[in-house]
Design a protein around this nucleic acid. Sequence first.
DNA 1: GTTTTGTTCAACCACGTGGTTGACAACACC
DNA 2: GGTGTTGTCAACCACGTGGTTGAACAAAAC
Lengths: 121, 121
Amino acid sequence: MAADQLSRVFSALADPIRRDMVARLAVGDATVNQLAEPYDVTVQAVSKHLKVLEDAGLVSRSREAQRRPVHLEAEVFDLMTKWIERYRRQAEERYRRLDDVLRRMPDDVEPVPPTQEGAVQ
Amino acid sequence: MAADQLSRVFSALADPIRRDMVARLAVGDATVNQLAEPYDVTVQAVSKHLKVLEDAGLVSRSREAQRRPVHLEAEVFDLMTKWIERYRRQAEERYRRLDDVLRRMPDDVEPVPPTQEGAVQ
DNA sequence: GTTTTGTTCAACCACGTGGTTGACAACACC
DNA sequence: GGTGTTGTCAACCACGTGGTTGAACAAAAC
């Protein structure tokens, strides 16, 4: 799927192995073989995982003799956190205001079912 | 894939339609048909998307006559942000300290390539 | 120049997923 | 009762993906 970068980033981090690689790369750069060592899969599989992370912009690779050290690019995280925070804040805001309305509302009033268009009342 | 919840949440948000649904649900609850309206897919497809979001714990559904209003559960976002922030902070910390080392280092010293085990030097 | 090391590419396979259509259940409304 | 609305379930299909093996390539080491 994917196409847009945000989708690629979320998709890349949906895999436990890839998340674990990111976690280890946060500690320091590593080569493909170093990264592959703890997992019970072939080096080729890890190489594929790295391609996914690279396409998502989460890692970059330099050249150093015949090795290709992998480097974590932390900036892309911002894309996600911004997206997440935006809608979480919006949702929380909404509940807060809804609470206000409910608190103000006399008990005998039939609560209206919330609608999509009606925004937040 | 998936299994663990973190994987399910990331995977659920890797789809643009599902992300858009979450964005709209942040504004207010909605029924399946309301959610399906803007997209060029069948209601059944949207129903499937909602199942994915529900399995990830991102939305919940109540029963209200024959309608099933969908409600956004914002708390699950914390799971992601915690994971993301942890490793971003770690990575940034690492670069900061690496900068220190480089700044302190005399020019004629050969910089050692960072290793996985060697942590951060 | 040959061999070893590190990594990728190509072909394949099993399985999951996003989409479809069609049938069906549950409730509201005449 | 019958009819329309809302939503799900089942079966199917095309395609992507994570894994494999085997070959290829590039740079070091011998």
